[in-house]
Amino acid sequence: MLLALDAMGGDNAPHEPCKGAILACREFSDLEIILVGNRAQIEPIIDQAADDVRRRLSVVHTEEYISMDEHPSRSIRQKRHSSLRLAMEMARSGEAQGCVSAGNTGAIVAGGVLVVGRISGIDRPALGVAMPTLNKYTFLLDVGATVRAKPINLYQFALMGNIYSKYILGVPSPEIALLSNGSEDIKGDEVIASAKEMLKVSSLNFTGYVEGDEVPFSKADVVVCDGFSGNVVLKFAEGVIQAVYSIAKEEMGRRILPKIGMVFMVPMLKSLWGRFDYEKHGGTPLLGVKGVVIKAHGRSKAPAVASAIRVARNFVLQKGVEHITNELHKEV
C-alpha cells in the first residue's frame, strides 16, 4: 500500500512526520510512503532508518509548503507546488491510495474539496474523530470542516458517521444522536430541529438529542454537530484530561501519603492517560471526499503521525470511501 505524507505539515515538521513515517513502516511491512517536501531536510532523517524500512520511503521534492497560519482556500489554490497540494493530487490521481497531513486544518479541508473533490451528492465534508468515552469510542463529527452547517449537512454527517462507525469502528448498528442544548424535543435551534426531523424518517438508528455532558458517558455511537461546536467539544475534552492529569501530579507532589500511594497508582494513571492520548489515537478522517484524506493533530510528534498513517491504512483496507459512496447514494 502506498500513502503520501505531507512531510512539511505541522508544528514539528519535517522531523516528526519523517520519524512517524519510519515508525509506521516498521509496524506494517506492506506499507510504502512518499514523503512530500524539501529533500535536503527529509533525506538526512529517513536515512537513519533500517534498510528494510528505508527502501519503502521515497521523496517527492518541493520547497513550497503551507504554514499553519495561512489563508486556507487561497493557499491551496495559489501554492500549486506545496507539499500538501502535491500529496492530495497523488491521492486524487491514484498514484497514492491516500494522504496524511498534520498541517493547516483549513487548507486540508479546502484541498479535500478543491483538489480531491467531493463525493457526488455531498454538500459539505466533515472531519470526524473517534473519542474514547466510558466503555467504547464515540465518533464525533464535524470537528472543524464545516463551521456553519445547514440541516442537510447535519443529515449527511450522520449518514457518513454511521458508515464510518459500522465499517471502520465495527459497530453493527450505530446509535446516532444530535448534539444539542438539551435532550427534550423542544430544544435546539432551527437548524438542529430541522435535521432531527430528517433523521427521524431516515433508515438510521437515530436516538434523538444528547447534551455535552452526556458525550463522555457513551450515550451514542455517533454524535453529530456543526464544525464550530464539535471543535469546541473536542478541544475542551483534550484540555480537561490534561488539566486533571497535571492537577493529580501537583497534588501528589505536595503530600507524603499521596506520594506513597502514587507507587500503586502509576500503572492506572498511565492506562487512563493512554486511553485519551491523541498520540495513540491520532488521525481524523475527512469524510465526504473522493479519496482517503487523514488529518493529524497540528502538534503531532512521531507516534501521533504514525497513528494517523495507521488510520489511513485501515481506511483504505476497509474500503471506507467506497462504502460511503455506495451507501450514501441509497439515502441521498
Rank of each mutant, 00 (worst) to 15 (best):
Ser120Glu: 13
Val316Pro: 06
Gly161Asn: 08
Ala220Ile: 13
Leu328Phe: 15
Arg299Cys: 10
Glu250Tyr: 12
Glu43Gln: 04
Lys290Pro: 00
Thr284Arg: 07
Val201Lys: 15
Glu95Gly: 06
Ala177Tyr: 04
Lys19Met: 14
Pro258Leu: 00
Gly298Met: 11
Phe264Ser: 08
Asp142Arg: 07
Gly288Trp: 06
Ile294Met: 11
His329Gly: 06
Tyr65Val: 10
Ile76Tyr: 06
Ser202Asp: 08
Asp221Lys: 10
Gly10Asp: 03
Val305Met: 14
Pro303Cys: 08
Ile108Glu: 01
Val113Tyr: 01
Phe276Met: 13
Lys249Asn: 14
Asp69Ala: 11
Gly94Cys: 07
Ile33Trp: 05
Lys235Trp: 02
Lys249Glu: 14
Gly261Thr: 06
Pro151Asp: 09
Met90Gln: 14
Val116Gln: 01
Pro14Met: 03
Met198Thr: 00
Val266Ala: 13
Gln242Met: 14
Ala4Thr: 03
Glu211Gln: 09
Asn181Lys: 05
Ile163Phe: 07
Glu16Ser: 10
Val115Trp: 01
Ala248Arg: 08
Leu234Gln: 04
Glu331Asp: 12
Val321Asn: 13
Ala145Cys: 08
Gly117Met: 04
Arg54Ser: 13
Leu2Arg: 15
Ile45Gly: 05
Thr146Asn: 11
Gly103Val: 15
Tyr278Glu: 09
Thr207Asn: 09
Ser218Tyr: 08
Tyr245Asp: 12
Met268Leu: 14
Leu269Ser: 14
Val60Lys: 11
Gly212Ala: 02
Thr138Pro: 00
Arg313Ala: 04
Ile42Thr: 03
Ile66Asp: 07
Thr325Cys: 05
Phe264Glu: 02
Gly291Lys: 12
Glu175Val: 07
Asp123Pro: 00
Ser75Gln: 07
Pro174Ser: 00
Gly111Gln: 00
Met198Pro: 08
Gly288Phe: 04
Pro285Gln: 03
Ala220Gln: 11
Thr138Glu: 00
Asn153Gln: 04
Ile309Arg: 05
Ser29Gln: 07
Tyr155Asn: 04
His81Arg: 10
Lys259Thr: 03
Ile45Leu: 11
Ser83Pro: 10
Val311Cys: 14
Asp11Ile: 05
Val113Ile: 07
Ala145Val: 01
Lys19Ser: 12
Ala107Val: 12
Ala312Leu: 02
